[in-house]
Design a protein around this nucleic acid. Structure first.
Length: 847
RNA sequence: GCGGGCGUGAUGGAAUGGUAGACAUAUCGGACUUAAAAUCCGAAGGGGGAAACCCCGUGUGGGUUCGAGUCCCACCGCCCGCACCA
């Protein structure tokens, strides 16, 4: 008998699959297609357990679909542009390109041993000129269709490093390298018109039935549809201020009009009044994220201007500039109702403005103090002399009535607003896809000609000086204007890396094409039947991809059906691990790698005997030293063990805790399967009475495991496989019956542990490769037992059980049930009030 | 605050409204062994009892039902997302 040697068989079978070309995807109209895709990785250089779990799940689906006769596309690539490469270049001097391609080679080398069913011939990286050149072509098509435009937008500016900062480079309002206080600056930048699609992107969410409800809700909130009233306040000194409100019903509670520091009126006042300029400058300090703006202290400046209330010309309201009002939302101006909005109330209390109640709770009509009264819009409230004549009504009813009233009177109109803003794609960095336009003194902004694509990044750049190397490159910027031929300058901004990941799934259908996609291939392979990735991409990546699919359809790069490119989405949980920590003299935690720790009786100790605190289930992170390197696991146990474990312990959508004991148990189990198979291969035990029972077990296992895989219940499928293995091991069946059961076991395990399964299949005389064997089918007749054990309940509690023929009629079952000791005791000579018999399931006697 | 999700043994977790705790980990006992490892067999929700067996038990309290971990209502706790969004 040979021992289970993962290293040996895994290399051998990967080689065999490679030689047989089993994962090469080619169009084949005679077969149904299936496109399974896991979110492609950023090439950091090391794979981690999260990757292993993500790709294993995709691999289970892919291999299962192959066995079910589908023509499967299962590709892999690299999300390869982005700041880490530039940061690495700044820190240690190399070139982002070398760093990135080196990392890709390393990671590919770490992934291949996992034995994934990937068609590596389709692999690409988004930093390949062949890929980003096609992305530039898409950009030009989008430009042509009016889906991209330029406008002024605010960026984070580091005044010491003289560079634009990404949000993640702003820490507590300061630049990450310089430590200087970040300012907001305006630059002219490119934008995708995603907000034109707000309504469509929102409505189409309803059709995404195989997406998690959670993700749909998150996108719904992000798009943020609201209906409100838009109208203008007349300024006492002439002119108007247009406002948008979702609570027009509270108009009588207004105590001021607020405008954003970026509002045109604020700009106008800023230019001529140094007081205003000073106040506005203070409001512009800090980062550009909404979070940063929110966390800033509330600041206001009274402009001295007054506006007239639309319902009462004698009622004048002051106009304030306030830092919590966003120019991007609505009209950049509001009216403040402190009684029914906490921000407005805080503002009014700070600057001593009046607070006017417009409605009260039905049961508690008390004036607002320091807490705004904001009941749900569906709750009925008592109104204070409302101008539309409303007395008791819900907020929503009052809002609708107010919009109708304003429209009838002609001073306002109902408007639907979306929170979703256009997608700014310009980045002032080197390691990204160059935006293919040219700036000409004579012609302005001119798109590059398609025949000049790709516009390649220059290789001769350095990162020893802050700022964008493209900007200070001696020659790269110089070019001829595509329109007039005179000397002109290239755009030096590159694209947001979210652009790269917004269409890679389409590119996989024709990865070497000279156009972004090939319609014939896209028609055949799209859509992605199953997309798998982390919940952290619930909003941006998935929303941008949905927009891109629509835009690509408009430009003729994707078929109509691909406007929603992902038919089904699955979001998997993280791989977590306990954190082991001790404390230093100041009580701060000191972390320890799992390898440095010994576990005894549920406690952990260092080598020197000191006890270690265990913090359970935290996301694996290098800084907390609670990482387990998949490479170490593969070299000590093999890929099949790693694959089996990441699927076995928790439902796939939940986090799974990596434990050394669990990994060892997985390995022990696979070794046991090997041993059982190897025993059965050499056995000549004659057929026996137990054969039939084992065959029944086998068909039940086929049924349950199939259901488990179909429903993403991988952990349940694995539990079932454990049980089936136990049944085979304990069975007294003959050699042939055992071998048949083990061949099926190999097939059922093959999506999770493909290498071991091939070996077991081979040992037991399976034909060809198990990857090419059709998925076993459960014989329905074998699933039903002739006799069943029926529990007997008395008043809903289980008290006894009887074994009866499967098809015994109800009256017969009832008679047997009533005759049991337990029931006789409970009846105590009386007769039951009621007897429920559910055939084949249960008997309940009510006494 | 709003939206979503989740609360089951020591632990991870199973349970189309029908035997709660499958399967696995940790634990304990036994076999094999000079011994250990590996392997195999077995025990194990809590309480009571010599035993047959009985009582209690899926965060808490109610409800629907012959029957509720599962459905409904309220509450408590935890997790995630969003938010000065007008």
């Amino acid at each position: 008998m040979t021992r289970y040697s993962a290293a040996e068989i895994e290399a051998r079978w990967q080689d065999a699959w490679d030689k047989a070309g089993v994962f090469r995807a080619a169009r084949d109209k005679s077969k149904p297609k299936y496109y399974v895709l896991e979110m492609f990785p950023y090439p950091s250089g090391r794979i981690h357990m999260g990757h292993v779990r993500n790709y294993t799940m995709g691999d289970v689906i892919a291999r299962y679909k192959i066995a079910n006769g589908f023509n499967v596309l299962h590709p892999m690539g690299w999300d390869a542009f982005g700041m880490p490469a530039e940061n690495a270049a700044m820190a240690s001097g190399g070139h982002p390109k070398d760093w990135t391609y080196g990392n890709i080679a390393d990671m590919r080398g770490q992934m291949k041993p996992l034995g994934l069913s990937i068609d590596w011939s389709r692999e690409f990286a988004t930093c390949d000129p062949e890929y980003y050149g096609q992305q530039q072509a898409l950009f030009l098509d989008f430009l042509d269709k009016g889906l991209v435009y330029r406008k002024e937008a605010v960026v984070n500016w580091d005044p010491v490093d003289m560079t634009v900062l990404a949000n993640e480079q702003v820490i507590d309002g300061k630049g990450w390298r310089s430590g200087a206080e970040v300012e907001r600056r305006e630059l002219t930048q490119w934008f995708f018109r995603i907000s034109d699609f707000s309504g469509e992107l929102l409505e189409a969410l309803d059709g995404l039935e195989n997406w998690p409800a959670k993700v749909r809700t998150m996108q719904e909130n992000w798009i943020g549809k609201s209906r409100g009233l838009q109208f203008s306040f007349e300024r006492v000194d002439g002119g108007q201020i247009e406002v948008y409100t979702t609570r027009p019903d509270t108009l009588l509670g207004a105590s001021f009009v607020g405008i954003s520091p970026d509002h045109p009126l604020a700009r106008e006042l800023e230019a001529k009044d140094p007081e205003v300029a000073k106040a506005v400058a203070a409001m512009r300090k800090g980062g550009t994220t909404e979070e940063a703006i929110e966390k800033a202290e509330k600041l206001g400046h009274d402009t001295g201007l007054k506006v007239r209330h639309p319902l009462d010309p004698d009622w004048e309201l002051p106009v304030w500039i306030a830092n919590f009002i966003l120019m991007d939302y609505g009209t950049g101006a509001i009216f403040g109702v402190p009684a029914h909005d906490q921000r407005d109330l805080d503002f009014c209390r700070k600057y001593d403005l009046p607070v006017i109640d417009t409605f009260f709770a039905l049961d508690d009509p008390k004036p607002v103090g320091n807490e705004a009264f904001v009941p749900p819009k569906s709750e009925k409230v008592k109104w204070v002399d409302h101008f539309t004549g409303i007395d008791v009504a819900t907020g929503q009813e009052a809002i609708d009535a107010t919009i109708d009233f304003a429209e009838a009177q002609g001073w306002g109109k109902g408007v639907t607003q979306y929170r979703l803003r256009d997608w700014g794609l310009s980045r002032q960095r080197y390691w990204g896809c160059p935006i293919p336009v040219v700036h000409c003194d004579a012609c302005g902004v001119v798109p590059e000609k398609k025949e000049n694509l790709p516009i390649r990044l220059p290789d001769d750049v350095s990162f020893d000086v802050p700022g964008n190397p493209l900007d200070r490159h001696p020659t790269w910027r110089d070019c001829a204007c595509p329109a007039c031929g005179k000397p002109a300058r290239r755009e030096t901004d590159t694209m947001d890396t979210f652009v790269d990941s917004s269409w890679y799934f389409a590119r996989f259908t024709a990865p070497r094409a000279e156009t972004p996609t090939v319609m014939e291939e896209a028609e055949y392979w799209m859509n992605v039947d199953q997309y798998i990735g982390g919940i952290e991409h619930a909003i941006l990546h998935l929303l941008y991809s949905r927009f891109f699919a629509r835009a690509m359809h408009i430009c003729g790069h994707l078929p109509e059906k691909s406007k929603e490119p992902f038919d089904a989405l699955f979001t998997q949980g993280m791989v977590t691990h306990a954190i082991y920590q001790t404390r230093d003299a100041n009580g701060r935690p000191v972390y320890h790698y799992p390898e440095e720790v010994e576990l005894r009786d549920g406690k952990a100790f260092l080598k020197d005997g000191r006890e270690v605190e265990i913090v359970p289930s935290a996301k694996m992170s290098k800084s907390k030293m609670n990482v387990v390197d998949p490479i170490n696991i593969i070299s000590s146990f093999g890929a099949d063990t790693a694959r089996w474990f990441v699927l076995s312990d928790s439902p796939p959508e939940r986090d799974v805790e990596w434990t050394a004991s669990g990994a060892e148990a997985a390995f022990k189990h696979l070794s046991r399967v090997w041993r059982i198979a190897s025993d059965a291969a050499g056995s000549d035990a004659p057929a026996s009475d137990a054969d039939e029972a084992l065959a029944r077990e086998m068909h039940k296992a086929i049924h349950d495991v199939t259901m488990g895989i179909e429903s993403f219940g991988f952990n349940a499928a694995i539990a079932r496989l454990y049980a089936f293995t136990n049944a085979i091991q304990k069975s007294q069946a003959g050699a042939e019956a055992k071998r048949a059961a083990l061949r099926v076991l190999a097939q059922l395990m093959s999506p999770m542990t493909p290498h071991l399964s091939e070996s077991v299949w081979e040992m037991l005389g399976g034909q060809g490769l198990v990857i090419n064997a059709p998925w076993p089918r459960a014989d329905e007749a074998m699933l039903v037992e002739e006799s069943v054990t029926m529990p007997i309940q008395i008043n809903g509690k289980r008290r006894a059980e009887i074994s009866v023929a499967k098809d015994m009629d109800k009256a017969e079952v009832e008679k047997l049930a009533l005759a049991t000791d337990a029931v006789q005791r409970a009846l105590d000579g009386g007769s039951p009030k009621k007897v429920i018999v559910v055939p084949g399931r249960i008997v309940n006697v009510v006494v």
